[in-house]
């Protein structure tokens, strides 16, 4: 029911991720920015883990071959249907025959396009996420290409009700209608900062680095290199010196592990990272800041801040409480529509 007329730079189907198969070497993949992914789903009445499109910097052109309820969250890639610009964090009714286009990347790096019912592709190991490295999941295990057609799944009752209500409010000529509510873009604004602050806890091998490296790791910002993708971000401008020359045995790594290969330029592991690694780990990105990091793009600057494990958990809980409140408000709007 949607047709990809142009694929954009890298557009792939993602969900929460392929969780629980890491002992077999299967990476989790999933949406890089889990926060925007969840918000976009809630805005179209989905439970929160339906498959969405992750759109990277240069967006696709998408033709709608059926009426749809959609929402876009995360990066602002200037989406528009005809002359009407679509605001992020809003629910839209899009009429059959409409064409959605993206333009300039105004802020962030990755936009999430959710559709009521989610994108219907087969589950591979309980997930619809595209795992590019192994060519599994998503749409034929790959990024979307011109001519691909995607179906939406069965929408929830609330989404159906809203779809009918918005369709009735739409004039006969308009292609798209925006619901009169939305979520605040305060989160989206934080990725436009000149130096993006990212909170971390100390890594397993933090003490193996020399005093200057341990200090500079937090004192000096890093540049995100052009060799950065869904697997990892390579960081430049601040080389780190490891005092231990001991060869490490490979062991588990996580989304957010900051490892330092012998050349001294750290790599932050992202959603498509391998399950294990053998480089020293200087720090671990706090889960609460992973969505922000996922919105940083090559050329951006980030600066690490040290926090305790207790703080990381406190921030996580606060974020979740705020999100659940937001979800409640979204659901109320749906009820009233």
């Amino acid at each position: 029911m949607i047709n990809i007329q142009k694929p954009g730079l890298l557009t792939s189907i993602q969900d929460e991720g392929r969780i629980g198969y890491q002992q077999f070497g299967i990476g989790t993949s999933g949406a890089m920015d889990q926060l925007s992914f969840r918000l976009a789903n809630w805005l179209v009445g989905n439970e929160g883990n339906e498959a969405v499109l992750e759109i990277t910097m240069l967006g696709p052109t998408i033709a709608f071959e059926a009426d749809a309820l959609i929402a876009i969250c995360g990066a602002d890639l200037s989406p528009a249907v005809g002359k009407q610009k679509l605001q992020n964090g809003r629910t839209f009714f899009v009429r059959k025959g409409s064409v959605l286009r993206f333009g300039t990347c105004r802020s962030g790096c990755r936009a999430y396009l959710a559709i009521a019912g989610g994108f219907a592709v087969a589950d591979v190991m309980e997930s619809k996420s595209t795992y590019l490295l192994a060519n599994i999941g998503g749409y034929q295990g790959r990024a979307l290409q011109q001519g691909d057609s995607l179906q939406a799944g069965e929408c929830t009752e609330t989404a159906k009700k809203l779809l009918v209500s918005l369709r009735n409010k739409l004039g006969s000529t308009a292609h798209v209608w925006q619901a009169p509510w939305g979520v605040s873009d305060s989160f989206c604004k934080s990725f436009s900062q000149k130096i993006i602050p990212i909170r971390v806890t100390h890594g397993k091998h933090f003490d193996n680095f020399d005093a200057a490296s341990r200090k500079n790791f937090f004192a000096k910002p890093f540049h995100i290199s052009s060799q950065s993708d869904r697997m990892g971000y390579r960081l430049e401008n601040n080389k780190l010196i490891n005092l231990s020359n001991k060869q490490l045995l490979s062991e588990a790594v996580r989304f957010g592990t900051i490892q330092v290969p012998p050349d001294g330029n750290p790599i932050v592991l992202m959603a498509d990272h391998q399950t294990t690694g053998g480089y020293p780990k200087i720090a671990e990105v706090a889960t609460v800041d992973l969505p922000l990091l996922a919105q940083a793009k090559p050329g951006d600057q980030i600066q690490f801040q040290s926090i305790s494990l207790a703080e990381a958990h406190k921030l996580m809980l606060e974020r979740e409480k705020a999100l659940q409140l937001l979800r409640l408000q979204i659901n109320q709007q749906f009820e009233m529509a």
Binding site: Q22, Q23, T28, E251, T275, T287, A310, H313, L317
Partner: peptide, 30 residues
Amino acid sequence: MTAYIPAFTNITLFYEPIKIMQENDTTDPY
């Protein structure tokens, strides 16, 4: 537990901090 990864000399277990905090009414899931 959401996942575990055995390695040569250790094993890593992943957990859901929010689930533990909410179900056990604690701020210290670790």
